[in-house]
Amino acid sequence: MSAAARTQLLRDSAPAGRERPVAGAAIPASDRNGLAVSIRGLEKHYGERQVLRGLSLDIARGSFVAIVGRSGCGKSTLLRIVAGLEQADGGRLEIGAASSCPACEDRPEVRLMFQDARLLPWKSVIDNVRLGLPRSALPAARDALRDVGLEDRAKDWPAALSGGQRQRVALARALVHRPQLLLLDEPLGALDALTRIEMHALIERLWREHGFTALLVTHDVQEAVALADRVVVIEDGAIGLDQALGLARPRARGSQEFAALEDRVLTRVLQQHGADPGALASPAEQIDALRQEGVRWVI
């Protein structure tokens, strides 16, 4: 355990009767760094189909990890298990074992952001953001809305928002809870390229400011390389490639390093396609073919 973590634990065992913040909103971000996640030999099947086969993954607290992989390889399943929405059939999942957060030892704050925003259409934007929270959380909800740049839409119905705005509201809804681990399941999948790039900047800024651990599932390799510290490829229900990205932030998408990493990850993912009968010959050829058509790196 690090020295900083130990001191925080010591502080936590201060005399009883100390005022302890109830809602996460009152705790400054610096005190609530992200949670570490440790996954060992995770198994999951639906009926006959085995989706996860002994998947192991360690995520350092406060880091940003992107998960890519073919459609149907179990990315959402993994995220839903980590979020507690689904039960694993085997293996071990530990969230926050190495955490030293003083105010949250009872329940780690894990939030999942879905591909569709899942806003309640009959609640105003601000009421969606403070869903499940008491009236006293209203200022915190306003702050979260301001964080995503939508404070002037607080009273609108979700139906009046654009797709990107809805995702920003969903992001704000997760942020009010001061998540220590934010799981993002293709949150930008339905957005246009320009809005995505704006959202990338927003998510990166919020990640830096709030200090949560981020786990992002995406189909877009460029998105993964733009945002993450580490890109993980899931193949056959386990981790295939684990690529650390040493790129400095903010990242220049055009840079050579960036392109090289993007190619590397993409090649790996496409190799699996190559294994399919009837697929194109070699991954490199496929990339070239895509390049010539001017297609962006979307798997």
Partner: peptide
């Protein structure tokens, strides 16, 4: 169902789930 799952994950259950999600959805 997705909205119900989302609301549950935000801590809504019992009467509050009915009032805030299921009844408005059925209205």
């Amino acid at each position: 169902r997705n909205l119900i799952e989302m609301a549950r994950s935000y801590g809504l259950s019992g009467w509050r789930l009915y009032r805030d999600v299921i009844l408005p959805g059925a209205l």
